[in-house]
Amino acid sequence: MLSINGLHVSIQDEKQQAKTILRGLSLHIKPGEVHTIMGPNGSGKSTLANVLAGRTEYQVHGGHVEFNGEDLLALTPEERAARGLFLAFQYPVEIPGVNNMYFLRTALNGVRKQRGLSPLDAADFLTLVKAKAQEVGLNEAFLQRAVNEGFSGGEKKRNEILQMLLLEPRFVILDETDSGLDIDALQMVAQCVNRHRNAQRSVLVVTHYQRLLDYIVPDVVHVMVNGRILKSGDKSLALELEAKGYGWLEAGEIR
């Protein structure tokens, strides 16, 4: 599904100085697998999520990313989306004046067109979106509001998961989707992700906390420090991190 080899990425800071964030990161995810990336603040987790989705302000200096046999980095963000890559944003943006329902329908029909399916008409879409909204526990009233405008943190995250359910992507990146969620919302989000899982779909969970992994059980856990994967293991690694923190791993890293 996804194969990252030796990825080097930097970003320009406010003083126009290049700041290196990813330093030779490699990661391989097979269809059907759920991987988790954990790591301290500033280790580059969200940068990785954004680079995979195609944000343009990052500079890639080296390495290669293959997505189902294609060079992912050569594609525009919308082309990546069309190929089934979905990013659930850490901070979903507000788009004033754009009706949420209209936005969701435009996105879905765009994806359907790419897949050679006919667009859904307003009535069919309404039935579908209402069912999905219920599944993620988002009140229907939010469908009639502007995209994310005035939504609480939890409502924004539910709206992200709603989009995941509608667009049925093959590869999902959850960028700290658990932050700002209470325990009920967390469980509901996890259930949706679990239902979405199948042998063809992969998930990359970026998180600070072990908590989410009680509900979305990963196949592989990676620890990212200073722009690189330092250690990989199974779920027990996440528990070990929870108990010991990141310090014992960082101490071994030569800076």
Binding site: A53, G54, R55, E78, L87, G110
Partner: peptide, 10 residues
């Protein structure tokens, strides 16, 4: 970027 990630053209 948010719109494009959801598949809309620029």
């Amino acid at each position: 970027f948010y719109c494009r990630q959801r598949g809309l053209s620029q």
